[in-house]
Computed example of a mutant assay.
Amino acid sequence: MTTGFALASPSRYIQGKEALASLGEHLSRLGSSPLLVADDTVWGIVDETVTESLRQEGLPVTREAFSSFATSEAVDALVETISSEGHDVVVGIGGGSSIDAAKAAGHLAGIRWVSVPTAASSDAPTSALSVIYTAAGEFLEYRFFPKNPDLVLIDTRLVADAPERFLVAGIGDALATWVEARATARGQGTTMAGGRPTRAGTALAHLSWEILWENALQALDAVRANTVTPALEAVTEANTLLSGLGFESGGLAAAHAIHNGLTAAPQTHGLSHGQKVNIGTLTQLVMEGADPEEIEDFIEFTTRVGLPTTLTEIGLTPQDTTELRAVAEASAAPGETIHNMPFPVTPDLVFDALVLLEGLSRRVRDDRGLPEPVQYTAPH
């Protein structure tokens, strides 16, 4: 077991307006037979640009449709395709499922892998791990790899044109990074990079937090107007690169463990990763006895961003004790990142904090003139 400090990062990160047009140029340095993994919706958006970019570099255009969670079965099917067709680099294009499946398949097949997110909706694209789910969408396991992606490329033109809820989700995911990293640094936990958090990893987590508090609301304005602005570029970097480096090399703690626990409640299956993580972050702040002003400011800010801060908004109530007990038990399971907290964590502690959220958030929202919580409805 590694006992020193560790920092992990992708080999190259490319971000900017119209960056997708350069994908072929970057892929040509990595291989000669790429496999592109994207669902039909994403492919309809990127097909023309990606095809032209690859053809300019003399690369074949082979796309594998992907329309499920990143399950073990889906990953194994991709490995079979890679092996039977002789691909030497796999490119996950779109959301977290396609990218996680491509990373896991690339590792198993022994080839290079590339992340091309089409929205700034999570920090997963830069990491050396995949989250594997069951076919029903319940968290199953983390899979860790000996290296990070060879390339992460994100086009902020696509980010600006993506639905607003994707950027909101990315902000929710990224806001957890500093809260979890500082807890890990105070304790004796290890990071996804395989050691104690580096000062660099912790500092990048904090930088992500600062950028989001300064730019998130303006970045959402930009997405509503389908425009690329400095605020949107800043938040895209915070959501994707800085949060990615910060969570992997700074440390995960309670927020993401509670996200994983929430997948045990069927009511939450329509929620984005970032929405569930935001509930986890707020629960962590309550569990650790954070400064009341910090908790209240977090509730106000994330409510204004459009993230849930109550059980009502994720389809639960304080009276759903069976579901909340199941969430708490899963969150505090042996080996979960919640045990990076600088104090012992039990399911009872998680359960009590979850039950508290409803009244706490409603009080703060009322005190600060914020809207009443409404149950989330998944978009069609």
Rank of each mutant, 00 (worst) to 15 (best):
L245K: 06
E248N: 12
P230E: 13
N239I: 03
V235F: 12
A238M: 11
A255F: 02
L245D: 03
E237Q: 15
S249I: 01
T229H: 14
G244L: 07
A254M: 14
L245I: 15
A234V: 00
H259R: 13
A238K: 10
L252F: 09
A231G: 04
A234S: 15
A231C: 09
G244R: 10
N239F: 10
G246N: 11
S249G: 08
S243H: 09
A257H: 02
S249H: 10
T236H: 11
P230R: 12
G251L: 03
L242N: 12
A255R: 09
L232V: 05
V228P: 03
T236W: 14
A257I: 00
L242A: 12
A234L: 07
L242I: 11
T227I: 03
L245W: 13
E248D: 14
V228N: 05
S243R: 08
N239T: 07
I258T: 10
A254K: 00
T229G: 14
A254D: 05
G250W: 09
S249P: 03
A257L: 01
L232Y: 10
L241T: 03
E233K: 13
I258V: 14
A231H: 15
A255L: 01
T227V: 14
A253V: 00
E237V: 10
G250T: 03
T229F: 13
G251I: 02
G251R: 06
T240N: 10
E233W: 08
T236V: 12
L252V: 00
E248H: 04
T236Y: 13
G246A: 10
L252W: 04
L245S: 05
A257W: 01
L242K: 07
